[in-house]
Amino acid sequence: MAGVMEDIRKDYAGTLSGYLIQADEEARLHAHELGRKALTGGIGVLDIVTLHHEALASLGEAASLPLDRAAEFLAESLSPFEMSLRGYREANAMLSTANTSLQQAQAATEAVNRELEAFSYSVAHDLRAPLRSIDGFSLALLEDCADLLDEAGRQHLRFVREAAQDMAALIDGLLSLSRVTRSELRRETVDLAELARNILAQLRRAAPGRNVETVIADDLFAEGDARLLRGLLENLLGNAWKFTGRQAAARIEVGMTHAGRERAYFVRDNGAGFDMAYAAKLFGAFQRLHSPSEFEGTGIGLATVQRIVHRHGGRVWAKSEIGRGATFFFTLWSTGHGA
């Protein structure tokens, strides 16, 4: 910096004396150039002013000098500072505008989240209550007035009850789907193998008659939210369990492979499978590839899986063939995906 200062000092005095004799455009441009060099060299406005007075003093008595021109020259050499200050002010103003819109966007997002929260809360409370009445009073009719109804009438009431219970399952599914979005994401190390063993043990307890061979890889550690990852595996393993229901020798495998350079976890079964032509529909809410008479379900499970994977910045996809089982793959924190 001292070197820059010396260069400018010499140059300044010379150019100034030329300018005082003849105020030509070249000298004016040179003054501007000196100012720019000072600015980029880290020399301040006060240093320039000091230089200016030193140069003036070396040129002779103040009374004999055209001070207006000298002032013009100083102004010219300071103009890069002024421009830079203006640029800084403008950038600041733009930043502050951007900040304001960011704050507004944040406030709007928070408002939407609060609304969503209130909505889900209301769904949880208010939508189930009428269903309880529909189911309860249908059963009351079946119990109290059974002899007033013929078999067709009793069947109708049973359908009413089934429908109420299906809708309750749908509401619960939607609530758990929205909970995936609403809940805060925690990041910790999760043992997916341990989770899978737990979930499969639960499924076994609920269906002790089933004979299912399970193969779970060791060391399936992942970074993510333990509760959400549990929900993810519950859905995938629940599906595998359900769709192998008609296999004499059912097999469910949980493991890890590589998709390109990424780790891809997978859940594989040898169950009913699906037609890959419909693969794009798999992860949409309320999409089902099987009729309720084949396999029960609300069509919300895989939508929940996809949402959980997306919240973990990953991808999910499936491979299958009808009658030859299905494999669901997922990655977490893929490159190029945000959380």
Partner: peptide
């Protein structure tokens, strides 16, 4: 939690 199914309730 109140079950929707009255038999469960």
């Amino acid at each position: 939690r109140k079950p929707v199914d009255f038999a469960e309730f």
